[in-house]
Design a protein around this nucleic acid. Structure first.
Lengths: 197, 197
DNA sequence: CAAGGATTTTTCCAATAGGAAAAAATGTGT
DNA sequence: ACACATTTTTTCCTATTGGAAAAATCCTTG
């Protein structure tokens, strides 16, 4: 016995979205049924929130409607000694310089760490040389500690980050940081080798 | 008798992702069960691809894991799309609470990241319960953003860290953080799975 | 407005999901 | 190695889903 609830049923929303999706395409139930391999009745019920589709069917349906599964929801839219540890005191870092940045590796004498944390300084209004995108395997995480930083990711619009903001990306994609404010910026970068490292 | 199919079952992928998501948080099945309201067995089966969850359950599960539903799907295949990136704005984090800390996972809807960055707050002079050392595989990196923090590493003398200081250690060793100052402390923690993860 | 085709909703039943509890496996400390 | 606690997997059973076909609704046209 299906209750007549107009409470914000989770599936009701989904159903509406589904129907919308179908009608946007001007398709009928049977058309979608054919494309997806589901039964007409199933789709009908799903659209009205009578039933709650299983992952399998959702998956099929997505293919049938030619949308990414996510579209349905977008609702809201290591010789590191085991057991060891190390402390890095502010200011006691080992300095390194590259063309683009000045940074200090935090635990230089531990090797095979799963992560490589670095503190970096970006001089205010440093020239950004677009020829020098940095690329390397693995993933990278950056937090802005002070100042404002613009991150250039190859093929994407620049991202402006303020203190407290962070970004996570695939290091294999060309990237570049630059201070964006009047002051020097201070960043923390943590690199990790990719899954297959 | 479950067939031993290693065929690219659509749900198998999903299941793996699910398990990953749960383990990233260090949660047990029953923990997720409680948070999501689903039965333990259901989650277990879903993770192993034995069953195909319905939309309703998926929805609940997403809430329980504190991820956007879309996060389950975005990566139809791989995790952390090669070449992708994500930005976390200060204050736009997803809150999580444990017995000892309040922290916000920074990129909750990307899974299989090589690193798991979190921002945490430690209430001033919170009682430290030494019975509750935290232990999990992998390595951990902590930076103090604000305040003063004492890190207790099992079997070692407590380490006092001030803003800008950081510590890197093996997460398998019992560890515990506590704010040590008058003010609340703010920390950034990055976890990485160990070599054999 | 009646007839006929197209589309959607219902009905009925087999297939599958989901939960409670038992069983197995996996970890702890002693 | 042992018992003990914790976590995961199985088992067993009920509730729900999903499909085929029948019934109802909605066009369109004469």
């Amino acid at each position: 016995m299906t209750e007549v609830t107009d409470a914000p049923n989770p599936r009701a929303d989904f159903g509406r979205r589904l129907r919308q999706l179908r009608r946007d395409r001007g398709w009928t139930l049977s058309e979608v049924a054919e494309r997806s391999g589901l039964a007409i009745s199933t789709i009908s019920k799903a659209e009205r929130g009578v039933i709650s589709l299983t992952y399998d069917r959702l998956s099929q349906l997505a293919r049938g409607l030619e949308v990414d599964l996510a579209a349905f929801f977008n609702a809201e839219g290591q010789s590191f000694e085991p057991g060891s540890f190390a402390v890095a005191r502010k200011g006691e870092f080992k300095r390194q310089e590259t063309v683009n940045y000045v940074y200090e590796m935090l635990f230089p004498d531990m090797w095979n760490k799963a992560m490589t944390p670095m503190m970096g300084s970006l001089k205010a209004r440093e020239l950004v040389d677009f020829e020098d995108f940095v690329r390397h395997p693995g993933q990278e995480f950056l937090v802005v500690m002070e100042g404002v930083v613009t991150v250039f990711v190859e093929g994407r619009a620049p991202v402006r980050l303020e203190a407290g903001d962070s970004i996570y990306f695939d290091s294999a994609v060309g990237h570049l940081y630059a201070s964006d404010g009047e002051r020097d910026a201070r960043i923390l970068v943590v690199c990790a080798p990719g899954p297959g490292a």
